[in-house]
């Protein structure tokens, strides 16, 4: 695994990796090198399965991070390739030609994060949200609570507790107050 990762780093000039398990590594890669790297991983390195694509929104640094997780069945190892996109105009090269199911992931990412994948089939069609008009709901600047209260006729009389405070009160009541 180690030599192999070094080879990968040499080949694609990837930023230093970090890994928590022996058989799982995460590497950050440049946006335009990602299709090359994935093709190489799939065709020559045995990482034949793309497990998922996921996104994380970082409004603090104005970036959206995409993670492409590929799996090697022979060695039972995973590699997560990460890409940082510009948050204001998130656009990524589509890799649906490598794996067919990628198109579905990209549809979901387009709907939930507003990331554009030019050329991906059926990208603009509704996935789970039909006719969504607001900010993409998985962006962190979208306030779900406010939206739900505004839209879905909340029933009055609902009591909400902060789970941490509430459990503290219930399980370890303050001895002074009990007296």
């Amino acid at each position: 695994m180690k030599e192999f990762i070094e080879k990968l780093i040499d080949k694609y000039a990837i930023k230093p990796m970090h890994s928590r398990h022996a058989n799982q590594v995460f590497l950050t890669i440049k946006q335009d090198r990602l299709p090359d790297a994935l093709t190489w991983l799939r065709d020559f390195a045995g990482y034949t399965h793309l497990a998922f694509i996921t996104a994380v929104d970082y409004p603090e640094i104005e970036k959206i991070q995409l993670t492409y997780m590929v799996h090697n069945y022979q060695e039972n190892t995973d590699i997560g390739l990460r890409v940082l996109l510009d948050r204001r105009q998130p656009e990524m090269i589509s890799v649906h030609h490598l794996w067919q199911h990628v198109a579905t992931y990209q549809r979901e990412l387009h709907e939930m994060f507003g990331i554009d994948f030019p050329g991906s089939p059926r990208l603009k069609e509704n996935f789970a949200l039909e006719g969504w008009q607001d900010v993409p709901p998985m962006r962190r600047d979208f306030d779900t609570k406010e939206y739900a209260e505004k839209t879905y006729f909340p029933r009055p009389g609902r009591e909400t507790h902060d789970p941490r405070e509430y459990m503290k009160q219930k399980l370890y009541p303050d001895p002074k107050e009990e007296k």
Binding site: A128, L129, P137, F142, T144, K145, Y147, A148, E149, Y152, F153, P154, R155, R158
Partner: peptide, 19 residues
């Protein structure tokens, strides 16, 4: 279906069915 339950502040689930 009564008041949203654990999904009460979700962006895509309704709160009160009787509406």
């Amino acid at each position: 279906t009564i008041n949203g339950g654990m999904y009460w502040d979700s962006y895509n689930t309704i709160n009160r069915l009787d509406h």
